[in-house]
Write a protein that binds this DNA or RNA. Structure first.
Lengths: 151, 151
DNA sequence: TAAATACATCCCGAAATCGAGATATTTATC
DNA sequence: GATAAATATCTCGATTTCGGGATGTATTTA
């Protein structure tokens, strides 16, 4: 086999990996979505609430970085969570540009209730691999991700 | 270590896998997006055009199944691709419910030009893993995906 | 200190996606 | 052959997300 053919095969393989990756995450997300939708939250709202629940109050700016959405979208999501009384805006005392999103007791109560269930659901959805396989895959995915980011 | 603790650790591991999976695909997609955006197509438009380019004319219904979007969204995307003259609608002669989306010569010319480049770009983005690692990951992802779908 | 630059949030209009249901056609059932 | 059920596409309104730019605040620079 010559180099040209090898390269083409490798390209096909990469394309296949990309497709399988997309498909798999899609299947998983569909399941996770079902788990979340019952709660009256959409995935983004859940992600934001989870972030604040687990990592404490966050400047609105930081939320966008972690949840990977545009700044104009954060405003929208925070508005909605605030309307539902799960979080509240708190001005930063030392820097008046900054607004914190802080969880309310109502938000905390909700998460205390649903977060363990959520974790359990994910556990069940990902039970197709055993412990070692998961660890290996995490490692390999990280390698892939770091490389992709670094290009 | 008791069973309770083991389960909790496994839950943490699954959650981590889910997060890493999401992050990694996100990083990769961001790169692929850059590759596509220059062409005046968004990812969905590209996916639909690629499907028709590689698999031939498709009933509009089938497009939704393969590209994983709602039927109302397909109509929207096909409209846009039709306006750009990359595809055209063709009524099915034997079943008048069905409309095919068929690639135009203009659409074919475009894909002849950009699809090889696209494949090369993906090859470069995914070069963080070698051939064997990619094959293993494809296999493991499939296992994960089948299981998730089957629940 | 004044001006320029950077930063954080928000507003607005547009784009993308969805869900529910309308319409037209085909297939199945009696 | 008539009616019911299934299928394919599209319409419409609502939701979510984005990009660009406006506004207010902090930091740097000249």
């Amino acid at each position: 086999m010559n180099d040209q053919t090898k390269l083409q095969q490798e390209e096909e393989l990469s394309l296949k990996l990309f497709i399988v990756l997309t498909r798999t995450l899609d299947a998983i997300e569909k399941r996770v979505l079902e788990d979340i939708k019952c709660l009256g939250l959409n995935p983004t709202e859940f992600a934001v609430l989870e972030l604040i629940y687990n990592k404490g109050d966050q400047p609105i700016q930081k939320i966008g970085e972690k949840v990977l959405i545009a700044s104009s979208s954060i405003t929208y999501v925070v508005d909605k969570l605030e309307k539902k009384n799960f979080i509240m805006r708190k001005p930063c005392p030392t820097d008046r540009r900054i607004t914190f999103a802080a969880i309310t007791s109502e938000g905390k109560d909700l998460m205390d209730d649903i977060f363990p269930k959520h974790k359990m659901a994910i556990q069940q959805i990902l039970a197709g691999l055993d412990t070692n396989e998961k660890e290996t895959m995490i490692q390999q995915l990280k390698k892939l991700g770091y490389y992709a980011k670094g290009i």
